[in-house]
Every structure is written in structure tokens, then in C-alpha cells.
Write a protein that binds this DNA or RNA. Sequence first.
DNA 1: CACTACATTAGAATCATTATAAATTATGAT
DNA 2: ATCATAATTTATAATGATTCTAATGTAGTG
Lengths: 138, 138
Amino acid sequence: MSNKHVFIEKLRSSGLRPTKQRIEICKLLFDRKDTFHFSISDLKNNLENVSSKKISLATIYNTIHAFTGKGYLKEISINSDKTYFDTNTSDHHHFFDENKKKLIDLNDNDVGKIKIKKILPGKKIKSIEVLVRITNDN
Amino acid sequence: MSNKHVFIEKLRSSGLRPTKQRIEICKLLFDRKDTFHFSISDLKNNLENVSSKKISLATIYNTIHAFTGKGYLKEISINSDKTYFDTNTSDHHHFFDENKKKLIDLNDNDVGKIKIKKILPGKKIKSIEVLVRITNDN
DNA sequence: CACTACATTAGAATCATTATAAATTATGAT
DNA sequence: ATCATAATTTATAATGATTCTAATGTAGTG
């Protein structure tokens, strides 16, 4: 696996030691070309399919949280049911298909520039998130 | 209370019988000029302050969900910690103050028009939600 | 007033997430 | 390589929000 040193670097820079469990998680998250939108349970299921040795939830949570803190993953709020994460960390927005309960990326070009005309003294903007809810057209 | 028949109408049109517990909830939600952003636990605390007789969580949940379904309340997704509701049901967006953990309304004029340039066949847009996260400016 | 369907309630169940504590492993120095 | 130490993993328990349940109470119709 030629990417292993990349994974190790991602882990170290997130303040985590590389362990075989975390490397497995990295493979699933970062060894892909497409964007991956997932919940923790999605990830757990995927991990169990790929390698039959199971990784505990605690390990999954701590790894994902470290990556999110470091900016290697984005956390997305859709509803209170579940937290979703996104391997696409560039500035972008989302469709949420309410029928399929799936996220679809909207890249920056897909959304016109957003102007916020209200300013709050002593506050600065940390992020602007657009969520476009879509449903079947019938 | 001259608003009581308004509350009863809101309840009936949401498919709920008017009961004294639900009327209490209505008073707190709709008998005000300002927008009210709240979580279920906020609402429960408020109810316990106003009237010393306690209303069970089950009743609060079923009433709030019926109002949300009917469009008398808006549900807002900030993070997975908690679900927030908003008595302002007009088209508008939000600041979320990450230090104070509070929502602030951004009315439609505060946000420039949002253009979605990507179209998905067979799907229609149900809503566009903008969440602007803000933090202390230091 | 009486009947029926809907509501209320406390408490149990559930689900995602976080904390705990004991056993295991990575790392850096020797 | 070996050792000591600190970090990690894991199963399990704890937590907190939300939903369910089943017994009791109340609103609405006639």
C-alpha cells in the first residue's frame, strides 16, 4: 500500500498514533476518488465488510473526531437523527434528498455567491453552510 | 385570554384536541412578539417556570411535532446535540453563535439571493437553508 | 349523562454518543 | 532488540435526547 505513509502522516498531524485500526479507517476514508458521505454506523458497517476483524465504536469515534478537528473531514448537520461526515473538505454545500436520505455535493460553482449583509460586532464568520432540501418532483 | 380561540384553532388544524397542557404550550410559543428559538428542554424549563404544574415530555414532544408538521414551527439543524425549533416560520436563515450556542435570525434581506445552478432531474427544491457560524472575533 | 376515541403521564426502551477501566500496543531511550 | 511509559483498544457502562407503552384521565358526540 503506497498510501500508507500518507495515512500515517494524516494520523500524526491529527495528534494520533498510527495503529492498524486507524490505518483501516484511513483506507476506507481516503483511499478513494469519490466523495464519501457517511454516518458513524455507515462507517462501522463498511469496516466490517472490508476486514472481518471488528473495530470498536470508541476507536471509530475518536479517530473521526480527530480528523474532523484537524479539517480532514467535514461534519454536516442535516437533522438530529444522525451526524454525517464528508471526505470532501473543500468549500461546498449540499443537497439533501429527503426521499433517499442521501447527501449530494454542490460544489462552489453550483451555488451563487452568498452575501451576508448583517454584521454582529465582536463576531466573525467561521463558515457559511447551505443545505438545499430536495424531494421527488411529483 | 383573547388568544385562546387562536390557540385552539392552531391545535385543531394540526390534528390535535385542545387540552389545558397544549394551551399552556401555545401561550409560551405564540403569545409573544419576538422570535423564540428553543430546544425541547428549554421549552420544558420555561413551562415549569410559568405554571408550577408540570407537563410531561411526551406531551411536549407530540405537540411540538404536530406544529412542526403543520408548519407552525420550523425545525433547525445545527449539530447533533440537540434539535432546535423556531417560532419564526417565514423564509429566513440563521447565525449560530458558537460561543454562546445561540441562534440569531437573519431575515431574507440580510442574505443576498441564493442561486442554485445545479438541477437534479425528477427532484424539486423543498427549501434552502443557510447557516452562518460565527465566533468571537479575537 | 355515557361512550368512545384521543390525551396524559411516569416510566421503560431505544439510539447515538461519551466515559470508564482493564488489557494491549506504539514509541523513544537504552 | 528490550524496556518503560504513555497512548490505544476494547467491552461495557453511563448519558442524554427522543420514542414507546400501558394505565388512567379527559374531550367530544349524541
